[in-house]
Design a protein around this nucleic acid. Structure first.
Lengths: 336, 336
DNA sequence: TTGTAGGCGTTATCAA
DNA sequence: TTGATAACGCCTACAA
């Protein structure tokens, strides 16, 4: 069995409270007493029981990182980055995956409400369930939302300006001379995707090009969906000369399908993908991508959460980060 | 504030213990009383405080997953898979990253010893620090080791037969007619890498080929190291005609360097990589890889841990899984 | 079937 | 500077 405060108290012949104070560097402990206590603790390899501590002090030094899906390389990068910062500040992270299920989100929210964690960072997630989130809005619940949109947002948030990202991509492709730019995106009910679509439309209009609804292809977010949609597309009447794909894995599938079909990128089809991760950098040809600043996202979100926990935040903060367009071979025009 | 057992007890006009029993489906509660209690709990959205529960019952329904590094796609897959199983069984996972630092491993071990988690799965990790682990070997500490080697191992473990994996790779390459097979591996002090090297040597000898120490290249495990080592190699006297690269990211870097140098795979150099992940499947050309059965690894490790927690394991179990060789273009011979 | 009471390992308050 | 004591929210004998 693990040694406890009580044991140390007995050994040092002092009260538990004194031991607690000594161990937590609180004032009001004699120098010698403190030294003696620390020595005993050290020798016996004392580890405070975090459960008891959490129960008594209402502070667990744990935060929940709640992912809407674990399949996005970008999100995993964010988690890694948060883990690093958290560790530096002495926080443990609990990794949760909701798989976009509202029910699970509710469960994980209870980690917060039962004081099991000091705060939570929600990464991604559809609008669905946001009323639940909203119900748990309270100064007591330290919540940071990452890339999660809602019509009304009371929460401290870190957002990516998706519209801007797609806008840049379209502008670039138009500049390269592409005329029929297709958008492979998510479904409209996803606010994030809706924003991307609006960026797409805006850029086309601004370039004086017609928005053709038949060039917008909503699909699921996985690799297979990207593959399948291309097979559909080449059967259609209007064949695009360029693609913008708004999700990471879908992009990969799309590229694979194009190549499998015997077509060349960018000669037959230009491609702008999503996410500057190892995947898009090693795929052949190297992909032009809209790149979320994952490092910054992680930093802001953890910093914000820390401020919330330490009650250093006096008003709602929303940080909007702009994605970059990283231009590589896949979108360089044959027209030039 | 969150509602507690006591509140429910008051509302239902019964004792706390009765509420506790009712909520935990324990026998000895009248049907009507139980119904009433459950109703109240439901209506008030009662969530037990897991800290208190953990403190009282010595059971937190949390397990720690301790990674030696977060950069391996294979390990991330294992984590995802464990998370899934854990969730199904009502367990939360705490994700920890030691970055191969002994000190951190020690810290995380204390999660176990302070009863903050019911068990821990260690994924990867050098031999370094294993004496620490050993010190915390006790029936009370539920620990499963994944792909972690040590001369003496008291722990329930899930291992990959690395030697066998490399053996298969060498045999395949020899069969394809390659004569100068280089090994890009980790340093000897890493037991896992040592095992891979032994598989390499064994296969060569068995094929009647000479083992040339100058064809074994220990490097770091990252992408850059794979890139750099190739640049070194082509300056040397003995130029290999095939590479086996034993780590995931190193493999990627190696392939990039080869292509950047203007060489072709497999015409100039055959390559067998490590890890059947999305990376090795999309890289051009598709890579022949030694593939760890990550799904199985995750399943075994979680199942073992569950057994340990529920005291259903009566002796040390060690499961050794054999990697597969997945043959794709990168190792098909020009000699054929 | 139900209630009482003690305890899990801390922290925090108030006296001494 | 110290110590006693009451929380924190829950579980579990044991008694009724």
């Amino acid at each position: 069995m693990q040694i406890t405060l009580k044991d140390i108290a007995r050994m040092a012949d002092v009260a538990e409270s004194t031991v607690s104070r000594a161990l937590n560097d609180k004032p009001g402990v004699g120098k010698d007493t403190k030294r003696k206590i620390l020595k005993i603790a050290q020798e016996n390899n004392y580890r405070p029981n975090q459960l008891a501590r959490g129960l008594a002090a209402n502070k667990t030094n744990m935060i929940a990182v709640i992912l809407s899906e674990m399949d996005s390389p970008g999100n995993i990068e964010i988690v890694k980055s948060i883990e690093k910062s958290a560790d530096e500040k002495g926080y443990q992270i609990i990794l949760c995956n909701t798989n976009n299920q509202e029910e699970k989100e509710k469960n994980y929210l209870s980690l917060l409400e039962s004081n099991q964690v000091d705060g939570a960072i929600f990464i991604g997630g559809k609008l669905v369930g946001s009323h639940l989130l909203r119900a748990s809005f309270s100064p007591k619940n330290n919540i940071v939302l990452v890339n999660r949109l809602a019509e009304e947002n009371f929460f401290t948030s870190v957002l990516t300006d998706y519209s801007q990202g797609i806008f840049k991509a379209v502008k670039h492709l138009v500049g390269e001379g592409f005329k029929n730019i297709a958008l492979i995106c998510g479904h409209q009910n996803d606010l994030i995707e809706e924003e991307k679509i609006s960026g797409y439309k805006l850029a086309l209009r601004e370039a004086g090009l017609e928005v053709k609804p038949e060039l917008i292809f909503p699909t699921k977010a996985d690799r297979q969906a990207g593959y399948d949609v291309f097979l559909d597309i080449i059967e259609k009447d209007v064949i695009p000369d360029a693609f913008i794909s708004t999700r990471e894995l879908t992009t990969i599938g799309l590229v694979e399908a194009i190549k499998m079909g015997g077509y060349f990128i960018p000669d037959d089809f230009a491609v702008v993908g999503y996410g500057d991760n190892i995947l898009t950098s090693i795929i052949d040809p190297p992909l032009t991508v809209i790149s979320e600043p994952v490092g910054k996202i992680a930093n802001y979100s953890f910093e914000f959460l820390l401020k919330l926990i330490n009650e250093k935040m006096n008003e709602q903060q929303i940080e909007v980060l702009t994605p970059e367009l990283i231009i590589r071979e896949s979108s360089i025009s044959k027209y030039n």
